[in-house]
Design a protein around this nucleic acid. Sequence first.
DNA 1: ATCCTCTTTCCTGCTT
DNA 2: AAAGCAGGAAAGAGGA
Length: 372
Amino acid sequence: MSSTSELCMILTNANMTMYQTGRSEPLQPSLTTVSLPAVGDLLHLSDLSSCSANILAQWYDLNPQYWSKQNVLEWISFHVERSKFDASTLSMSYCSMDGPTLCQLTRDQLLNMFGMSLGSQLYQSLVELKAKYDLNETCKLLDNFLEEFPDFPLLSTVEVNEVVRDTSYTDFSHIFKNFENMKPLSDNGYESDSMHSSSSGGMLSFQNPSSPESRSSESDPEFSYPQLSKVHIKTERGEMKKRGRGRPPKLSRDPKHFYQTSTKSKHAPRGTHLWEFIRDILIHPEQNQNQALMKWEDRREGVFKFLKSEAVAQLWGQKKKNSSMTYEKLSRAMRYYYKREILDRVDGRRLVYKFGKNSTGWKVEETELHGM
DNA sequence: ATCCTCTTTCCTGCTT
DNA sequence: AAAGCAGGAAAGAGGA
């Protein structure tokens, strides 16, 4: 047996182990037809006990520092499936390491080992998992400290009047499980669907980050989120009304902020723009060595095509810490570039765009000049 | 505090 | 039928 097919088999077995749901077939976590929610998504469900315990992989309940080789393999496998990565292109040797070894790897090392797409996803996941356990430790220490001061409530008893919207890869439900009387903020026009899916008033409900109307959950046979039409939402009184247009308000996306002080964090420097992100994928094909995400149709003219549109969208979502990014949404942002002439229209060709006169850094001369 | 840019989200209608 | 495209509308995040 070749090492690559062996790896595929191991990864498949790891998946079978991870997702023993009584079904014989392995997961098919296609981005468009996912049949199970991502592990992180599961943790947004208000009642974890209603989930099959087997679905929650072991690695998720352990500090990466303490992962075994098997845990690391399961974790890699999870992300391979999640990103539709071609496992046959992976080197077996990269998947055989334990948690402490993994935790010592730098972002660059992970990118080199697993490529730009999978590597950055793994790095992101690792950082968040580490943060999760670091936060747990901090909370415990703080609680120990606060016990010395009877007038102060323990963190685990603090009342929070804000709903957790998106815990991404990080599970904080156990931190909040003793929180009483949590109620979602009333918003200014749009209510998140999670508010309607809450089974009982007052208790915190975790929202499925890929919204209930998203494709990924629609086809999910095991986890049926309350389905509402795209057009209608339920009011507090339970009436159905037409939802407002546009983007619903974003509440606290990051539960870590519950424990942050009120001092405003300094704004990070503006990240690259979408068109720059796209450009960089095109001019650095070696950094997504394992996935042909995009290709030049006409290098000189700046015409390019999305080969894996949803994978690119996921990558963009990772960069923006937005797990619900889709090609549909990404493409809307791309279409706004037409007016600004950052992109030119390419009529009649699906997934094909062209850099416009207001975009830079993609021309052959430019890239050669800057050693790109 | 307000405005602006750059998205993000959602939508309807149309095309491929 | 599904996926993609077009573009309006509204809102969020971060910066000026």
